[in-house]
Design a protein around this nucleic acid. Structure first.
Lengths: 207, 207
DNA sequence: GTTAGCATGTAAGGAGTTACATGATTTT
DNA sequence: AAAATCATGTAACTCCTTACATGCTAAC
C-alpha cells in the first residue's frame, strides 16, 4: 500500500462527486469554495488523490461527451470526468458514518460538517457533541495554563490567550445552538431525517 | 544546507531562551504554554531544531550546575541547558524585525504576537496592519464565493461559511482595537516604546 | 497565430507527527 | 527497589506545498 490518502481530501472528493460528476480542475474550485477558509488544496494534492481513488475503484472515468464516432475518447490530454462507482458510494457512506475523533478534530470537522446534509441525524449529533467536548477540554487546558503562569506573562501574551480563549468559547456557543437545533428537528416532526440548522434569529444587523 | 528549520519554531525557541536559559523538556512546556491553542510542538520537532540551532552557533550548551569537581559534566544522559549566544541574539532581533508575510500569515502571526513585548513599536504596528489586510482579503474572497454559489449550497455549508466569516470579522475587530491601542500609546506620552494592549473596557462581565 | 486561461500531471521537499528507544531522577 | 515522571533523542512516515512540465481551447 502506497499513498494512504488523507481522510479529509478523500471525503471531500467523494462527497462532491456524489453531488455531480466532475473533472479535476472544476473539482478543485468547488473544493475550495465548499471548504472556504478552513482548508485549501492545490493540484499537487488533488490529482494524486484522484489517481489513487481511481486505482482503488472508488471513482471511474466517464467518456466525455462522445457525440461523434468516439474515435479518440481520451488519447491525449483532455478533460477527464470522474464519477463515483458503487464502491465509492459505499466508501462515502462509511466515511460519513464515522463519528469518532477523525470527524471532530480540527482537521476533519470542517469537511464532515460541510457534508452534513448527506449525514444521518444521529451521527451529526454525535459529531457536534464530540467536537464540543474536545473544545471544552482545550478550554480547561488553556485556562489552567493561564492560571498557572499568569504572573510570568507579559500583556501581549496575555491578550493573545484571552482572544484565543474567547474564540473557542464562541465556537462552543455556536455548537450549543447547532445541537439544540438538531435535537429540536429530531423530536419536532415525526420524521427522522430533518435538516435545517439555519434557525438564527438575527437576519441583517451584522457588524 | 539540510534542515532549514521553520521560522515559527526557531523564533519561539530563541525568544524563550532570551528570557531565560532552559533545557529542552522545559522549553517544550513553556513553548506550548506560551503559544497556547495556536500551535503545539512535540519533541520530534523541538530536539532536531535545537540541534540545528546549536550547529549554527545560535545557542550553546551551558554546563549544568557544576557545583562539584565537574568530573562528568555531560558524559551520559542528563539535562542540557541551552542559552542564547551573541549570534543567537542577533538572529532573534532580525526575526523580530521582520514585518512581512512571515509575520502576519496564519502560521507566523501567533508567535510574532507572543513576543511583541520584545518587538519595536513600529514593527508591531506594521504586523498588525498586515494581518488585518490579509484577513480583509480573505473576507472579500469568501464573500464573493458565497455570493456566486449561494444557491447551490445546502444550509449546513451555508452555516459553516457564515460562522467562518463571523470568526474572521471578529479577528478584524480585535486587530482594530489593538491597532488603535498601539497608536494611542505611540502618540500619548512622549515616550516611544510603550506597551499596554490591555486597554479593554470590560473587566469581568465575560460570557 | 499568439497570448490567456483551462486542464492534467510529476518530482522534490518542507514541516511536522507518531512511535519508538533509552537513560536519569524523584517519589512511594 | 519499583514505579512514575523527567529528559533526550531518532527513524519512519504523513500530508501537503511549490515548482515545474506539458498540452488543449478559446479569444483577440
Amino acid at each position: 500500500m502506497v499513498g494512504q490518502r488523507s481522510r479529509v481530501l478523500e471525503l471531500a472528493v467523494l462527497g462532491l462527486l456524489h453531488e455531480a460528476p466532475m473533472h479535476g480542475y472544476e473539482l478543485r474550485k468547488r473544493l475550495n469554495a465548499t471548504l472556504g477558509a478552513f482548508r485549501a488544496f492545490g493540484y499537487g494534492s488533488l490529482y494524486p488523490c484522484l489517481k489513487e481513488l481511481l486505482a482503488h475503484g472508488l471513482i471511474a472515468e466517464e467518456a466525455p461527451e462522445t457525440t461523434d464516432g468516439a474515435a479518440k475518447p481520451l488519447s491525449r490530454r483532455s478533460k477527464i470526468v470522474y464519477r463515483l462507482t458503487a464502491d465509492g458510494k459505499e466508501r462515502l457512506q462509511q466515511l460519513l458514518a464515522e463519528s469518532g475523533p477523525d470527524a471532530w478534530e480540527d482537521d476533519g470537522f470542517g469537511v464532515h460538517f460541510a457534508f452534513f446534509s448527506q449525514t444521518q441525524a444521529d451521527i451529526r449529533l454525535r459529531i457536534l457533541e464530540g467536537r464540543r467536548s474536545r473544545l471544552e477540554e482545550r478550554l480547561d487546558g488553556v485556562r489552567a495554563a493561564m492560571a498557572r503562569t499568569r504572573e510570568r506573562m507579559d500583556s501581549y501574551t496575555l491578550e493573545l490567550h484571552r482572544h484565543g480563549l474567547e474564540s473557542v468559547e464562541r465556537e462552543v456557543r455556536w455548537l450549543n445552538e447547532l445541537i439544540a437545533s438538531e435535537r429540536e428537528a429530531d423530536i419536532g416532526p415525526g420524521r427522522g431525517g430533518g435538516h435545517h440548522p439555519g434557525g438564527r434569529a438575527d437576519p441583517g444587523a451584522a457588524d
